[in-house]
Design a protein around this nucleic acid. Structure first.
Length: 477
RNA sequence: GGGGCAGUAGGGUAGCCUGGUCCAUCCUAGAGCGUUUGGGACGCUUUGACCCCAGUUCGAAUCUGGGCUGCCCCA
């Protein structure tokens, strides 16, 4: 399906590397003839599915999954003023049914607040109905005008997890924001992806939110990638859509709401954060194939080797591992390159030497070779897999730590932004933010930073010198 | 938002400037047969392409215009 003998561009040339690996590792086919729409290859889709299965398992602890329609009537979409303003220039509209113009235009959801909340208004009657925590995983459409990129900037987001919760009070909704942040933390930890959480500046919050908390990670080129957002919506939408409940005193109250989103950018993060010059490096949690067995076939002992391979595959599969045996008629080296490109965490080789010595040769995706004895092979493999996960997380943490800089002047900030994110102090005023952003061609991502390497505090603003909070500055995707 | 460059088999390319030599070059991948297999195997046979629409011309992969798509740089 793909050409594999050419070398990948080095990951240091991240843009070229990313474009190549998306195709060569069979994540997405970018040749669909509409701008910003891409096709999942089965392998990429398997990676997506394992990732979202994991996300679902975390969400299902206290949310329920649901599914709302793709089309939103204009009359609902146009109800919340700030929300409209935020999305009006990127909505696709359905204007015709067949040849007849529609009386009420239908929006292809760019996000689903205005599809979901009219129904919430019907479903919620009493305080006993709260909290309500639903999520769906759907496609959304946005008419992006900027440079589109697979998994990162799309016109059809194919895998948008959006959670929408309703609570009795603002404080309870706020607790929900915190709990979604913890969930994000856990989700990305399981993917080995270190994150930085921060509160977006007021002008950068979700249209119609009280505030927005964002989850960012740092890609190899030092650019930040927003891989999750959690919005406290307060009563903006509940007042608009009349989401009310009767409290214990018999009074009608507006609900307080949150919404939370994660898209296939989480896959882009897996690819970007962990990959190397040989290809993908996948966390064991989500790797479509966790262990690949490669027989080293010597003609006269082929039967013997195949038998050993089969037994091993059976044993490993019995424990729930995703195992594949590569019996293709290829040189072993070619197989190694193939599975390394696809990020398989662990390879087990079985050749004549191993048969004689009653052993297997295991090589993990980071190139570490271990010879394990035939007995207890299942435990050995499981341990080696745990090791890979630990190692890639550690490596990613180190990268993040090494690319978090501080700066006290705009010049310093500008210089350090080359390949890094920078922590500064900022008074909180938009004027100063705009000045800094202009001087450094960057964005103030947020304040109230949560990351173990960042200490929040008060210090003079990098622009005006007034006391200001710790703020995160980056060049973002 | 502004600018630049590009589109030739599944992938990467040559040809384009200066139209005819091109039923289009090379590498790779695919199919078939055989020999191979501890880090990208080899031999033989074989399949497969000029982004779309107009225009100029006796003649267009090549020139012009528009569209679509992609990539890069700057804000």
């Amino acid at each position: 399906m793909s050409d594999e003998t050419e070398r990948l561009p080095p990951r240091s040339d991240f843009s070229a590397w990313y474009n190549e690996i998306i195709r060569r590792a069979e994540i997405m086919d970018v040749r669909y003839p509409v701008k910003g729409l891409y096709v999942w290859y089965p392998f990429g889709f398997a990676l997506r599915n394992h990732t979202y299965t994991h996300l679902r398992s975390l969400l299902n602890r206290d949310h329920e999954e649901t599914l709302f329609p793709l089309l939103i009537p204009e009359t609902e979409f146009m109800k919340e003023a700030e929300h409209i303003k935020g999305f009006e220039d990127e909505v696709y509209w359905v204007t015709h049914g067949g040849l007849s113009p529609l009386d009420v235009k239908l929006a292809l959801r760019p996000t689903s607040e205005t599809a979901i909340y009219p129904m919430y208004a019907l479903w919620i009657r009493s305080h006993a109905d709260l909290p309500l925590k639903l999520y769906q995983i759907v496609n959304t459409l946005r008419y992006e005008t900027k440079h589109t990129r697979p998994l990162i900037r799309l016109r059809e987001i194919t895998s948008f997890m959006e959670s929408h919760t309703v609570h009795a009070t603002w404080d309870e909704a706020n607790k929900q924001v915190e709990s979604e942040l913890v969930l994000s933390q856990e989700f990305y930890h399981d993917l080995g992806i270190p994150i930085i959480i921060s509160k977006r500046p007021n002008w950068d919050k979700f249209p119609g939110a009280d505030f927005t908390m964002a989850v960012d990670t740092v890609m190899p080129d030092g650019k930040t990638l927003q891989i999750g957002t959690i919005h406290h919506l307060g009563e903006h939408f509940s007042r608009t859509f009349n989401i009310t409940y009767e409290d214990v005193n018999g009074r009608q109250q507006f609900g307080s709401q949150t919404c939370y989103g994660i898209s296939e950018r989480c896959i882009a993060a897996i690819i970007g954060v962990h990959g190397d010059d040989k290809g993908l490096v996948l966390p064991v949690t989500v790797a479509p194939t966790q262990v690949v067995i490669t027989p080293i076939i010597i003609n006269k002992r082929a039967d013997e080797i195949f038998a050993a391979v089969k037994t091993l595959e059976k044993e490993l599969k019995a424990t729930g591992l995703r195992v594949k045996t590569d019996t293709r008629d290829m040189r072993p080296g070619a197989k190694y390159y193939h599975w390394e490109l696809h990020g398989v965490p662990l390879r087990v080789e079985i050749g004549p030497r191993d048969l004689d010595n009653n052993q297997f040769v295991c090589v993990n995706r980071l190139g570490i070779k271990t010879v394990v004895p035939r007995e207890n092979v299942v435990e050995s493999v499981k341990m080696l897999l745990d090791d890979v996960n630990d190692q890639i997380l550690e490596r990613a943490e180190k990268h993040l730590k090494n690319h978090l800089m501080t700066a006290t002047t705009p010049e310093e900030c500008n210089e350090r932004l080359n390949g890094n994110v920078v922590v500064v102090h900022w008074c909180g005023y938009r004027d100063c933010a705009e000045k800094l952003e202009k001087l450094t061609n960057s964005t103030i991502l947020g304040t109230e930073i949560r990351n173990k390497y960042v200490i929040n505090g008060e210090n003079p603003c990098i622009i005006c010198g007034k006391m200001g909070k710790t703020a995160l500055v980056g060049r973002s995707y």
